[in-house]
């Protein structure tokens, strides 16, 4: 157990598609489990990061909670990895960047079709939205990037095995995809 590397994962403004793709490792997950144990992750339900070797971040930064989560990961992970299009360039959620936030919120909560009891949610428990969705490298320092929407299971495999075997991670041509 002592030799296992600790991996934490999370999804910020993402769709969990990258996590699903990770699970596509299928039987390779068993092999991986011999070397890896999971810390904070939707897979484990651990709520907060402890010291980890690798943090995998899916999704961009769209609200204040994302910022706190991202910082927690940066603080606790030796290597922080941006996983997937949204973490790398904001992706689909960032397509709201072209509409002023005021309009987005008004449409959703005040004057959109079918809105009843129009009001902007105002609960201290709710994270506030940033005016723009940002890629994670604009908020904390990122060490590696795994592009793709989602990155294929092979990408995760290649990346993690490279790291486990002490090689500088490298993605071959067929593994680099932005879609």
């Amino acid at each position: 157990m002592a030799n296992k590397i600790r991996v934490a994962t999370t999804s910020l403004a993402g769709c969990f598609g990258c996590h699903m793709s990770f699970l596509d490792l299928d039987e390779r997950l068993v092999a991986l489990a011999e070397h890896v144990e999971f810390d904070r992750s939707p897979i484990t339900d651990i709520e907060h990061c402890s010291n980890c070797d690798i943090g995998l971040i899916e999704g961009g930064v769209c609200n204040s909670e994302n910022v706190h989560t991202l910082r927690e990961f940066r603080k606790n992970c030796k290597i922080l990895v941006a996983v997937g299009a949204c973490a790398i360039n904001g992706g689909l959620p960032a397509m709201r960047n072209f509409i002023p936030l005021e309009e987005c919120l008004s449409e959703a909560y005040l004057d959109g079709i079918g809105v009843e009891n129009p009001q902007i949610p105002s609960d201290i428990e709710l994270p506030l939205l940033l005016d723009k969705v940002r890629p994670i490298h604009e908020v904390v320092k990122i060490d590696y990037y795994l592009p793709g929407c989602p990155p294929s299971a092979d990408v995760f495999w290649k990346f993690l095995t490279d790291l486990l075997e002490g090689r500088e991670p490298e993605l071959d041509y067929e593994l680099v995809h932005f879609d």
Binding site: N89, G90, A94, F98, R134, E138, I142, Y144, V176
Partner: peptide, 11 residues
């Protein structure tokens, strides 16, 4: 072998 955008995005 470009894996990221490196620079801040302009949107």
């Amino acid at each position: 072998n470009m894996l990221d955008d490196h620079f801040p995005l302009f949107y």
